[in-house]
């Protein structure tokens, strides 16, 4: 257990270091901007009180190093200030958007991992068949195809040509309100199908190939022979093999979530999905920098935390690393 604790604290330290670097870069970026640095935090259509509040929050009248410390502290505590244009705190906006993003990513992640594991396990188990070759080739080509073009194609075919599914958004106008009502509604599912399909088609490659190759390795392992000699039914042996093959997958899920969250920006634009990525693009276009820096910060933090969780999970799953 202490080895795990050690690894955990090391990872945590690294996470803090990375976050600090990211924040420093963000701080520097917004200050290196030509013109008045205060413009990032203060906008012309703000009321006098709001401007005052902003100046206080970010310490705009203080020397730069006080501003720097304040900046790090504010970000670490999720005090992002107020949006310039939306009558809301940045934190509230980001929370809503990230929920929406998760509403797209999470199903895609689950489908990719579960389906990918099953396909990969079978492909590895029955190696050499034509089906297996086809699986691998398809997976590889899907993976190297640019997902945003795939998204556009899918949209062209299924929404505009066939008119089977809505061309974008998360709900139809007048759809259900409230998070739970929403994500359990058929309307949401109909909106989810296309983007989710594109995400899965891209992200499933990792699990398929990874599970397949570790399956190939495990299939030749001595303990599989013993399981067979023990008279276990084929499916039990497959369960053993898959459990072993899953070990590397757990770490990969971390990588995958990061990829998902980034590739997400493009898909949110294409499918007009009101998530974090789309919010970032809009905020940058509107010069709503408070929202933009918050969005980048939240994305980076989420990716890092997910990686941490997955790394730790690996420690629990593989008894050898305990």
């Amino acid at each position: 257990m202490s080895r795990l604790a050690h690894a955990f604290s090391r990872r945590l330290l690294l996470l803090a270091l990375t976050m600090w670097c990211i924040l420093t870069i963000l701080f520097a970026l917004f200050r290196l901007l030509p013109g008045d640095p205060a413009a990032i935090f203060v906008d012309n259509n703000m009321s006098i009180e709001m401007i005052e509040h902003q100046k206080q929050l970010w310490g705009l009248n203080d020397p730069w190093w006080v501003q720097y410390i304040r900046y790090i502290a504010n970000m670490a505590l999720f005090r992002f200030g107020d949006s310039f244009f939306q009558n809301q705190t940045v934190a509230a906006i980001l929370l809503e958007k990230i929920t929406n993003t998760c509403a797209m990513i999470f199903p895609a992640l689950v489908i990719s991992v579960v389906l990918g594991t099953i396909i990969g396990a079978f492909a590895g188990w029955r190696r050499g068949g034509r089906l297996e070759q086809a699986t691998v080739t398809t997976a590889l080509i899907l993976h190297s195809a640019p997902s945003f073009f795939v998204g556009i194609l899918v949209l062209m075919v299924f929404s505009y040509q066939l008119r089977w599914l809505p061309p974008g958004g998360m709900t139809s106008p007048g759809g259900p309100e409230g998070f739970w009502d929403l994500i359990t509604s058929a309307d949401y599912l109909r909106h989810l199908i296309l983007p989710c399909m594109v995400l899965v088609s891209r992200e499933i490659t990792g699990p398929v190939l990874l599970v397949r190759s570790s399956m190939l390795e495990i299939k030749g392992a001595d303990f599989i022979d013993i399981l067979r000699a023990k008279g276990l039914p084929e499916w039990r042996i497959l369960v053993h093999a898959t459990r072993n093959a899953l070990l590397p997958l757990v770490t990969y899920i971390a990588v995958m979530t990061g990829l998902l969250l980034q590739g997400q920006v493009l898909l949110e634009i294409i499918f007009a999905w009101p998530g974090l990525g789309r919010e970032l693009v809009t905020a940058l276009a509107d010069l709503d920098y408070q929202v933009a820096q918050g969005a980048v910060y939240v994305m980076a933090l989420t990716i890092l935390l997910l990686n941490l969780v997955a790394d730790m999970l690996y420690g629990f799953i593989d008894p050898r690393s305990r």
């Binding site: 001595d222 000699a229 023990k230």
Partner: peptide, 25 residues
């Protein structure tokens, strides 16, 4: 039938016990 008689009738002590046990169970 084969599965039913495996291990119950003929069991094996393999050449390399090092890898004969599943590491995750």
């Amino acid at each position: 039938e084969l599965r039913a008689m495996r291990w119950r009738d003929i069991a094996l002590v393999p050449q390399s016990a090092m890898n004969a046990l599943d590491p995750v169970y």
